[in-house]
Amino acid sequence: MTLINTVSPDFPPTHIAGWFIFNTWLQNTLNERVRLELHDSFSQQQDAIQSDGVDMIYANPADAALLVREKGFVGVARPANHADEAVIVVADSSPVQAVEDLSPEVRIALTAQPDVNTMGMIMLEPADVTPSTATKLERDTYVLVAKALMDGDADVGFFLKDAYENLSSIVRSKLRVLVTSDIQVVRHGLMLGPRMQQHRQVLLDALLNMNSTENGKEILSNLGFDAWEEFRSEDVEFMIDLMETLTT
């Protein structure tokens, strides 16, 4: 049997090689055949989850409820001290200086990253912006979100903070951060489906020890983390509760 590993499509493109290296490490650690399948979009990934075509996933927190409640996944580990934060950005030439300056009919450029979009919409609520008043312009990448702002097609853009900071300095010089989230508790995590849960303890022990070897540190570096910590059942449940409070 070949197990299927996947990664939430919002991971930075610079980390693709890192996830393939991680998958090789995973096979050696578990002595199992594991294939890494990457999806181009959240909808493709959802289809794979729904058809039971995923055994392990580095999951966006917005997908935790589906994975746990409907598909029987459990958490195993998550990056230590690594929260998802969002930034709301305007063109540098924009007259908008604060969220409250925006009109409820704001045009938002965004990607399909669900947790960033949830945090972004919450940060626009003080301007009476709601999903029904705003116009959402979905783009495939954060570079295209930046372009929409620079071209004047959108009033604000939603970015994952890390992705915004990875834009070139030339692009960032034409943009301005309006507000940055400081939520601290919205985080991705590694989760295991039913066919893989027999390996949870072995995998957890190996992940927690990853930063104690030079090879492990290099794998972590290629993923953009320093270390893993346990993603306990209660942590997963709290994440599901948190996302529920944020989506209304």
Binding site: I122, M123, E125, P126, A127, F238, D241, L242, T245
Partner: peptide, 18 residues
Amino acid sequence: TVRDGEIVGYASVRRKPS
């Protein structure tokens, strides 16, 4: 906060209002 089908407490999230 529901765990194993029972309410065991409550989670509160507050955000900036309009």
